[in-house]
Design a protein around this nucleic acid. Structure first.
Length: 286
DNA sequence: AAGAGGCCCTGATAGC
DNA sequence: TGCTATCAGGGCCTCT
């Protein structure tokens, strides 16, 4: 489910709610997430204060007191839900009503004084991890490439990385060690707006094409954040409102629709690149 | 050592 | 309707 924009929305919502709050209890209903939730998870988090919530790539990072960290990855189908202990109207933040919570797969519940944060994940590709120090946190993320908005994600960097690589550009955009945070939806959207064939080998990209990819990446991701993320199946913000960026999709899941470029009479086609659906216009992207 | 493919898992949908 | 097959937004691991 979640790519960088969706995780960013989750992070922003969590900060509004849980910043400076203390977790007083954790309940683990199911330890079999992507990685097994450790036996000491509940005890470790009990009575810890959250200093702030941040994001790196598609990971949510809870910074706790005494320089400890909790990392959360939502995998393909993870969602976060807020539940107020005593639901009241007229509060300045709207909470999930209990009836809107999914019935199953509520694997983790974090109890706060006035609310609960619930981690739900049908496919269980998501995971949590405790990190014991800031240096361990840096080590954990050391293999990730730059954030798309980072100044290190620039044309010199990509030129160097692409010079001898025979990989296609679609797959390269999904490579988290090259640039972190882009997933399968936004990869197709970025390449359409850059007018580049997703199958093109990166060593053959011109400097102009490389610059275009960088610019369009920032534009697409930024705009998606502004629109509250994409809700293909089930992505909602923590208050249960859906994002709306899926309405802006030019190609993703739009096979057999007409190409949205003015004057182009081609249809959007769907192909598989390394087992992942890829959508593009053969006429505009080459 | 880069790059491709398998695999973890449940649920929604399509096709018969 | 009810079965089976396919596919879904991620990333780790293994093999070549």
């Amino acid at each position: 489910m979640p790519e960088l924009p969706e995780v960013e929305i989750v992070k922003q919502s969590l900060n509004k709610i849980a910043k400076y709050k203390t977790i007083y209890k954790v309940l683990v209903n199911n330890r079999s997430l992507r990685f097994r939730v450790p036996e000491n998870f509940e005890n470790f988090l009990r009575k810890r204060k959250i200093i702030k919530i941040s994001r790196r790539s598609k990971y949510v990072i809870f910074e706790l007191d005494f320089e400890k960290f909790l990392i959360l990855h939502l995998g393909m189908s993870g969602t976060i839900h807020l539940l107020k202990n005593n639901f009241k109207k007229n509060t300045n933040i709207s909470f999930y009503h209990k009836k809107d919570l999914p019935e199953n797969h509520n694997h983790l519940i974090f109890f706060f004084n006035k609310f609960k944060i619930i981690y739900n994940d049908p496919r269980r590709f998501g995971f949590v991890k405790i990190i014991e120090s800031r240096s361990d946190l840096n080590i954990y993320f050391s293999k990730l490439g730059p954030e798309p908005f980072d100044k290190n994600f620039n044309s010199n960097y990509l030129k160097r990385k692409f010079k001898y690589s025979i990989k296609n550009i679609k797959n390269s955009l999904l490579d988290q060690t090259l640039v972190s945070g882009i997933g399968n939806i936004y990869a197709s959207e970025i390449l359409f707006r850059s007018r580049i064939d997703p199958l093109k080998k990166v060593k053959y990209l011109s400097i102009g094409e490389i610059r275009k990819i960088i610019t369009k990446t920032k534009i697409v991701l930024n705009y998606a954040i502004k629109k509250g993320g994409s809700s293909i199946r089930d992505f909602k913000n923590l208050q249960g409102a859906k994002g709306s960026y899926q309405k802006e999709f030019k190609v993703y899941a739009r096979d057999n629709f007409s190409c949205p470029n003015k004057g182009c009479k081609s249809k959007i086609i769907k192909i598989n690149i390394n087992q992942r659906a890829t959508y593009y216009c053969k006429k505009c992207q080459n």
